[in-house]
Nucleic acid binder design. Structure first.
Length: 104
DNA sequence: AGCGTGACGAACT
DNA sequence: TAGTTCGCCACGC
């Protein structure tokens, strides 16, 4: 089982609607913390890849981040494209256009 | 209990 | 413009 912090991160991810993406920074902001690293750590340890749409979490620059090659990073990109997110190979065309901001 | 690591981010050189 | 450094916090050893 995961820790309370992890659950918060997963909860944030689940709020991201299909066709939109969020960044580690946004999640950190939602959790009211400056530790985006802790968020990244939490996401990386997600127990449910299906329940936690980690493919909708990208870097602040809009690229896919250090997604393990085992999962074939381009697959993540393709998945996002199917959800309606316009991506240029590894770069999101207009991050602001698809970025989801959490309600505070 | 303390130290190092990490799917990041922003600032600096 | 690109590469490097520091800071942030949670987690494993």
């Amino acid at each position: 089982m995961s820790t309370a912090f992890q659950k918060r991160v997963y909860s944030a991810q689940k709020k991201v609607p299909r066709g939109s993406v969020t960044t580690y920074g946004m999640i950190a902001q939602y959790l009211n913390t400056n530790a985006v690293r802790a968020v990244g750590t939490a996401v990386s340890k997600n127990p449910d890849s299906l329940n936690t749409p980690c493919h909708r979490v990208v870097l602040s620059k809009g690229n896919d981040g250090d997604y393990p090659a085992e999962f074939t990073s381009h697959r993540k990109i393709k998945l996002l494209q199917e959800e309606g997110t316009e991506i240029d190979n590894v770069l999101i065309i207009d991050l602001k256009r698809y970025l989801y901001t959490f309600k505070q």
